[in-house]
Design a protein around this nucleic acid. Structure first.
Lengths: 267, 267
DNA sequence: GCCAACCGTTCACGATTCATGAACAAGCTT
DNA sequence: AAGCTTGTTCATGAATCGTGAACGGTTGGC
């Protein structure tokens, strides 16, 4: 459901820094992520999944339960809504979310598509806000989900307006893994793509993340011109083609980004 | 922002069970909750807040950062959107959320108010879904927030349709702490209130949680007649009074609850 | 522009407690 | 009712967690 980067993968952005981690916390969060991925699990299944002793898993899971983050149902454990509370709070604290929500809602209505706000964390993209289009409840990605920057319109918009050294650092550590057959995987082709993003202040995703889905994005920058986020719209239609319905969409995306920028820079 | 129950409080629902907890995890989550509450904090401030050594806090905070849940900005740490991703997943997995979202949206539109879905966890209420009314972005409570069952319409609806032994257990462990001057704090008066909820299958909150806010709720029950959740609407108007706009609201809430029940009981 | 205070970070050590595997008890299935 | 499987408990050895002090970098004040 959310497989791109998990605790048990080697975090690629920190090959150095051999400062010892809090191992118990790592294990507890591995439990959380296993429950996040599988829904409801018993102690035995969790222990098998995480390659731990049953007793160990039991201790972690009861700890999380006592803290209110896990709920025991029958003889299984599942995540409660505790992390949702924490997550919503961190979301609401984001400036881009607070001031960008209104403009993004309006963008969604005006273009009749799914509109999103994306931010970068640890060299990866995360949706800070998504407006589901109409009653289309079941999107492939949701608020808080992680996505690779190089395969999304929002991610490209952010990378294009990120200082070169940091940008290269990200490319170096995350690479350009293919998501679909349209994903740009060549380093130089991608750098060229970013250059064209800077030309028009507009980034496109042509089924590079998800087959059948197209996106347009524009960066939201700070006073220094560096991206702090990106607005985008997604649809199962190509943008910028001849059809009149999608012709002015890029322009609306850009003006939404500008509107958010202005709101961000005035208290 | 979310003060009702935190890790450092004594969890009231588990006075027994002296099974030893994973202490390191407890500390890490205390760090998370401190960041959740205060936004951005440095190591020193966190250490003071939690009464820990700076070195200890540093280890926890860097662990959480390496796992992708915390972001370092300047010389401070804040929560990233990682927990939002986990939280949204647990939300989307809830049956009540999946099938109740549509009906709740329609209820909000039909009544022109804020509509919510509440579930019970550990004897406390949590919002599983909230439809912000129009552009009224700034509500006092949000999805994932914890609320006392006895001071909310949804909570009363749930308690009224909870098996008596479990209900008494909850009352025993959580008590009836006053939230406003209208909160029912007398044990017998509250039992009487629940009885009247059962009479009409409708629960009211008359400024018992938040001054100026009224709510009506109806329980969502399973085949055994026990509550699994509650639907409610909230407004700054009294319900059931003479004004025509709010007169039929309780009826709409009940029919929404019934609609969700029916959807829940058919695959 | 320098100094001092403060901050985040590191480290070695002693004490805590964490993970283990096996034994126990409680359910569900047959 | 037997027999499997599950969640839970427990003692023990080993890992590591928390501490306080020291380090180096940044900042703000004089």
């Amino acid at each position: 459901m959310n497989k791109l980067r998990r605790v048990d993968d080697e975090p690629p952005f920190m090959t150095d820094s051999r400062a010892p981690l809090a191992q118990t916390t790592v294990t507890s969060l591995r439990v959380v992520e296993a429950l996040d991925e599988h829904g409801r699990l018993g102690v035995t299944a969790l222990a098998a999944e995480l390659d731990l002793a049953k007793g160990t898993v039991h201790k972690h899971v009861t700890t999380l339960e006592r803290l209110g983050y896990v709920v025991k149902e029958d003889r299984e454990y599942r995540l409660g809504l505790g992390f949702l509370g924490v997550g919503v709070n961190s979301q609401r604290r984001l400036d881009v979310y607070r001031v960008g929500r209104g403009p993004t809602d309006r963008l969604s209505k005006a273009t009749d598509t799914v509109a999103s706000l994306m931010v970068a964390e640890h060299g990866r993209g995360r949706y800070a806000y998504r407006v589901p289009h109409g009653d289309e409840y079941e999107l492939a990605h949701h608020e808080g989900d992680v996505l690779p920057l190089h395969a999304t319109a929002g991610g490209k918009a952010i990378l294009a307006y990120t200082p070169a050294d940091r940008r290269e650092e990200i490319l170096e550590s995350h690479g350009l893994p293919p998501m679909t057959e349209h994903t740009i995987t060549d380093r130089d082709a991608f750098r060229e793509e970013l250059r064209s993003v800077r030309d028009t202040r507009t980034a496109y995703d042509r089924e590079e993340l998800l087959d059948g889905w197209h996106c347009v994005a524009a960066p939201i920058t700070n006073e220094e011109g560096d991206a702090v986020a990106a607005v985008s719209v997604s649809a199962e239609t190509e943008f910028g083609d001849a059809s009149k319905r999608t012709q002015d969409v890029p322009g609306l995306v850009i003006s939404t980004a500008t509107a958010i920028e202005n709101k961000l820079r005035s208290p």
